[in-house]
């Protein structure tokens, strides 16, 4: 059953009781919350995601709860609990959904060492996939959102889960985290995009989350093999430029952007080596999403090699 098929009142009840098991393939997360705004955002953002039966195994038990006490009338805050233990500092209640997303990223990155976990966006079209690894500020999420709104399948905006034995990459197809100016850019670029309200003054500035397209959520179980690694570099007023990026530098970038490269030791080294070997590696400087869509289309159709 999908989240969207649950009556809102039942969804709220399940979340209140902590009995909602959300399938985030390859994981299952058990969620609990009493925060009304979070329930509302969750229902919209995860509408196309499946629910698991109550007696299934859950990888992560997550709760977002309103902070009790008199302060809640003046300065309402929420706190993230991982399996009953408070984690991270409390945040203003308006940031509840963003907090859920950041918390889920942490759950996966801190515990799932069956994968090499790379901080990167992953997109697929016509069976071919691109990895967009990037340090913050490079415009990765904006580019990812732009391509997804033009028919690319979203695997992930933040976490690429690389299976080191099969070479397959999984994403969870979760909402895309847009920051600051990119919120307006995406709204303009894709007026039909579904976003949460913009939340100002977070640690990352103003954020809004973009709902993944239904097709991406439906195909969440299908992994990809990467064909390209593209390092995006947003530079205002620049003409688009796709240029080869050396394999050695790309290797270092992937290793740096991996959360658990150190834990995998030699296997991690081999895995990153194999991944970089199998991919064409580029750096892409851009300032306009329309240019980017065109470039990636050319990449996909084999016009660029």
């Amino acid at each position: 059953m999908k989240i969207s098929e649950l009556p809102r009142i039942e969804l709220a009840n399940l979340l209140h009781r902590g009995e909602l098991l959300l399938k985030l393939p390859p994981f299952v997360t058990r969620l609990k919350t009493n925060v009304p705004s979070l329930i509302r955002d969750f229902a919209v953002m995860y509408a196309d995601f499946e629910v698991s039966s109550i007696d299934a195994f859950a990888d992560f038990h997550v709760e977002i709860a309103s902070e009790p006490g008199l302060w809640r009338w003046l300065k309402p805050q929420v706190r993230f609990f991982f399996d009953g233990r408070p984690s991270f500092i409390p945040l203003p209640t308006v940031q509840a959904f963003a907090m859920l997303e950041w918390g889920l990223n942490w759950c996966v990155a801190a515990h799932s060492h069956q994968y090499l976990i790379i901080h990167a966006a992953v997109l697929e079209k016509n069976g071919k996939a691109a990895i967009l690894p990037a340090p913050p500020g490079s415009g990765k999420s904006t580019l990812c959102a732009g391509l997804v709104m033009r028919g690319w399948r979203l695997l992930s905006d933040e976490l690429a889960l690389y299976d080191m034995t099969t070479g397959e990459i999984f994403g969870m197809s979760r909402p895309i985290n847009l920051k600051n100016r990119s919120i307006g850019i995406i709204k303009q670029f894709a007026p039909d995009a579904v976003l949460t309200d913009s939340v100002p003054d977070t640690t990352k500035g103003t954020v809004a989350l973009l709902r993944p397209p239904t097709q991406s959520a439906v195909r969440v179980r299908e992994p990809v093999r990467a064909s390209w690694i593209v390092l995006p570099k947003y530079t205002p007023n620049m003409l688009p430029l796709l240029e080869p990026h050396s394999k050695a530098r790309t290797f270092m970038l992937i290793a740096e952007q991996s959360f658990n490269y150190d834990i995998h030791g030699e296997n991690g080294f081999e895995a990153v080596g194999n991944l970089v070997d199998q991919c064409a590696c580029y750096q892409y400087t851009y300032s306009q999403l329309d240019d980017a869509v065109r470039t990636f289309e050319e990449l996909c159709s084999g016009k660029i090699t």
Binding site: P26, F27, V28, F57, D59, H111, S112, H113, Q114
Partner: peptide, 9 residues
């Protein structure tokens, strides 16, 4: 398998 991953991790 899903459980085993937590153990091996």
């Amino acid at each position: 398998i899903a459980t085993r991953h937590h153990l091996t991790s």
